[in-house]
Amino acid sequence: MSKINLSVNLCGIQLTNPTILASGILGTTKALLKRVAENGAGAVTIKSISVESREGHKNPTVITFEAGMLNAVGYSNPGVDAAAREFTNLQDVGVPVIASVIGTQKEDFVRVVDGLSAQRFSAIEIPLSCPHTPGFGLLAGQGTPQATFDITSAVRKVTKLPIFVKLSPNIPEICTIAKAAEDAGADAITAVNSMGPGMIINIESQKPILSFKAGGVTGDALRPIAVRCVYDLYKAIKIPIIGVGGISTGRHAIEMIMAGASAIGIGTGVYSRGIDVFRKVCEEISLWMQENGFDSIKSMVGAAHD
């Protein structure tokens, strides 16, 4: 394989390559994070953690369709105390680990960040944008500029780690929300969360398949929307962007980087290309860069802009 350097510096975190395991996929245990790292991810994100444990929605929680995936897992997680025990000695994972933190109110975010502070996380991600879990994200009104500012400010006060604010593609004024996050001290924007919610109905039983009926849409269907969001954000904010949404090949990753992303998240791609999607995407990025005369990821960031 080529010797192309894929490393990126994201808010002071050194990554050997720009691929990041997106939150909600395979991030349930430290052992799985390590496995994803061994399969080439530059960084990994844990499944979101709340103050109390949550069972989430009943099955079916994840299904696929012609153009991606539909999920309403409902933030199942063991709660902050169990998570703090699960994610000890994170240096064993081998790559930076990002903590995804959720709450129904800003005090919850603070409690979870506090509860995880003894573990060696490299950054905190706060998704204010889940479209399918009552009490959280969009369904709790966290997707407004004011709520984004308030929650981000509250987390900023209790951690020195970089804060990534994860936004919804649904909201036309995504740039206004991103600016609110930037003003409140966020270090990067993760764009985007799943869109929708959408619904898939089984016509023989005449019922929606997901137990929650509606779920967030990810995968190929989301990609053009995610690319446009990142393109718009790149012009509107100064902090770096982590581009997420439908990336499963090197070409997709480069497209997102050219829209303005400094690093890229992969989630549904684990389904379409397997757990080694990270290594495959990196090899494809390297090959393309070699053939097209690019020698660093940084030199491609925002290349699609005039």
Binding site: I25, L26, T29
Partner: peptide, 17 residues
């Protein structure tokens, strides 16, 4: 088991899905 196709991580046993 939740998804059944290796993405949700719920059925982990020491890093094996």
């Amino acid at each position: 088991i939740k998804c059944g196709f290796g993405v949700c991580g719920q059925c982990d046993c020491s890093g094996q899905r």
